[in-house]
Design a protein around this nucleic acid. Sequence first.
DNA 1: GAAGGTAATAGTAATCATTTTCAATTACAT
DNA 2: ATGTAATTGAAAATGATTACTATTACCTTC
Lengths: 160, 160
Amino acid sequence: MPRRRCRWRSEKWWQGEFRGYGYRFTIPRQIILQVLDESKEHLSAEDIYLKVHQLYPAIGLTTVYRTLELLVNMGLVSKFDFGDGRARFELSPKTDQVSHHHHLICTNCGRIIDYNDFVKEELELIKKIEKELARKYSFEIKNHNIQFYGLCDKCSTLKK
Amino acid sequence: MPRRRCRWRSEKWWQGEFRGYGYRFTIPRQIILQVLDESKEHLSAEDIYLKVHQLYPAIGLTTVYRTLELLVNMGLVSKFDFGDGRARFELSPKTDQVSHHHHLICTNCGRIIDYNDFVKEELELIKKIEKELARKYSFEIKNHNIQFYGLCDKCSTLKK
DNA sequence: GAAGGTAATAGTAATCATTTTCAATTACAT
DNA sequence: ATGTAATTGAAAATGATTACTATTACCTTC
Ligand SMILES: [Mn+2]
Ligand SMILES: [Mn+2]
Ligand SMILES: [Zn+2]
Ligand SMILES: [Zn+2]
């Protein structure tokens, strides 16, 4: 019978990331990562704050913003703008079970659909583009953002 | 010798668009379009306001915002978010001499590079994706947004 | 061409996501 | 256990965008 390590909050692998960067692995940071890890949605800073607040009411909104910025810089979290005036966050693909995907955004109801059907082909093209642009513009690509805007099934039929 | 039509402000073709929609082609709208037409940059609402203000000081910032929203809805203008907290605008590709292009964004200095080297290939892939996603998710794609983040030549060498 | 009705406008105030400030607390190497 | 720099939370500031309201421009009808 495997001995279960006694731990109040699960010690995910990313604790090591923090140490590597010389950052402290504090309770707010743990909780915020936990919340991100447990959600499949595209949470805003305030969404995250509210969930965090349930687990640990002492944590302030400012800390959520600060931590998210840190996590984005560390590459653990991706930040998106879906056009509704607030930033959205999700755990980065490499981070976990989450696979690399892109987004469909309904401009009517705001629904976000993750898709990764074509991500492989997209990534191939991107890799090619990346090389050429690096040569032509001496531009060092670190990241990309691909999203499609339109109408989801419900909104599409509704408009007819 | 071609007779030059006497006109104070050039009557661009988009005047027709307005009438088609049942909108008035007012002076603020003309000036704002003119400013967009004459600029190759990616202007924020305030950038536009300042330029407009030089030509026609009576026009207010609110009108700039309202007009931009209208123009975006009409499809004459494209709105972008390059991550610096303010929206950026440019005349839509179909509109004019402007060709369809995508953007490279330097995350260090904020420089924006237009490129259209691969846009053709990208658009082919997009068209394909579009069809499949429309089938699979019943999602009606109207628009897309592709941008690359990284370091421009200057910032790239600076960091070494 | 004048009156009436509606769309559009300018200036102001309000909103709201995000940052900044700063004193108090905490993690953690010693 | 202690010292110290990193981190935090509350409050205030910021800054882009939007809402409100009175005024104006434009178009239609007489
Ligand atoms: Mn997603
Ligand atoms: Mn451009
Ligand atoms: Zn929808
Ligand atoms: Zn740069």
